[in-house]
Design a protein around this nucleic acid. Structure first.
Length: 122
DNA sequence: ATAATGACTTTCA
DNA sequence: TTGAAAGCCATTA
């Protein structure tokens, strides 16, 4: 698999594996959003969040759940703690506690920057 | 089987 | 600009 970081989900449990695979595919020092992963694997953002939350129920230290933040580039829950971990990864937060998608916003097709003048201000 | 929940997203006021 | 409500889909009870 050259680029397929995850395979099509055959079952609900496999769907979680897809999500974990996609999260694991995120390089260190980068962040992505729930919706982004949801679009990549083909499910809603809520499911991604639910899957990541399920990580607490299982031992999945291999999954950098910290790199997954909400669409606004901010952290919803466990803010301060997760933010500290991301900073340890090399991610920088601005005064508003937001991350610059221009620099850290990772996508499956990060082979090039393809964003369109989005300054990150939504 | 149905109902409720949830680490989200987007839109309207 | 910020704030609140609805929509979304899978999991769990």
């Amino acid at each position: 698999m050259l680029s397929s970081t995850q395979e099509p989900p055959q079952r609900a449990s496999d769907l979680y594996e897809c999500i974990y695979g996609c999260v694991c595919a995120v390089p260190p020092g980068c962040v992505t959003s729930y919706g982004a992963v949801g679009q990549i694997i083909g499910c809603s953002a809520r499911v991604v969040g639910y899957a990541l939350h399920h990580l607490r129920h299982v031992a999945r230290a291999d999954v950098p759940w910290q790199r997954i933040i909400n669409a606004r580039g901010m952290i919803s829950t466990h803010g301060n703690e997760q933010r500290r971990l991301l900073e340890a990864e090399g991610v920088v937060f601005d005064a508003q506690g937001r991350v610059d998608w221009e620099r850290f916003g990772w996508r499956q097709d990060d082979t090039g920057i393809q964003r369109q003048g989005d300054t990150g201000t939504r």
